[in-house]
């Protein structure tokens, strides 16, 4: 019996959530899960808030996770972690990339990027992890692999073995970027 697992990837258009979703879906399939993935990506290239929902179980009904339903939320951006926090199970885990991307209302000065997000989440959520994925990705050799660093961190929290993840990565990522992505995944996984 495979353990049901609901995970959300949230971030800002252009951060690579779609690739991370692909690798995760591939890994889940290899593990033998039935899987349903729901993405609203129409605005992905327009800098809007983006979210992928992945539901894993022997048999999945609804493709949607609703509030208080996610075992893990992997947030590629701080503010988005807060925005989607209502979707976390009370005992769930939130993994947050320590990066700020200001939304337009903040850019133009009609709203403020809130301070104290990490402190708030640490105070209220029992299981939270903050990752400097961008720095780690730069260390691995390409800032664009921050998404895969985060995936490596997520992998530890999921009932899927490391080899399965690595095979999935190999199948999804184009060859010429594979090595740096493997490094990024390992960096996240070994953290």
């Amino acid at each position: 019996m495979l353990k049901p697992f609901d995970v959300m990837l949230v971030g800002v258009g252009g951060q690579g959530t779609l690739l991370a979703t692909k690798v995760l879906s591939k890994a889940a399939q290899k593990k033998g899960y039935d899987i349903k993935v729901s993405e609203i990506k129409g605005m992905a290239q327009r800098g809007g808030s983006v979210v992928s929902q992945l539901r894993l179980a022997e048999e999945v009904n609804s493709p949607l996770i609703t509030e208080t339903g996610a075992d893990v939320i992997l947030s590629f951006e701080k503010l988005e972690a807060l925005r989607w926090l209502s979707y976390l199970k009370p005992e769930g885990t939130v993994i947050i990339n320590n990066q700020e991307i200001a939304p337009v209302p903040v850019l133009i000065g009609v709203a403020e990027y809130p301070g104290g997000i990490l402190e708030y989440i640490k105070r209220k959520v029992h299981n939270s992890e903050v990752i400097d994925a961008l720095d780690m990705a730069v260390e691995c050799g390409n800032p664009r692999t921050a998404n895969v660093v985060l995936l490596g961190v997520l992998a530890k929290h999921m009932p899927i073995e490391r080899e399965t993840w690595e095979q999935a990565l190999e199948e999804v990522v184009p060859n010429k970027f594979l090595e740096v992505n493997q490094k990024a995944f390992a960096a996240g996984y070994n953290l």
Binding site: G48, L82, P114, Y120
Partner: peptide, 25 residues
């Protein structure tokens, strides 16, 4: 699973969340 659906977070202590509307590139 849907018996208790109360959403507790983010609560009144949470920082204000500005919207992130789509934007011209």
């Amino acid at each position: 699973k849907y018996h208790n659906n109360e959403v507790n977070l983010p609560d009144a202590d949470a920082p204000t969340i500005p919207p992130r509307p789509p934007v011209l590139c």
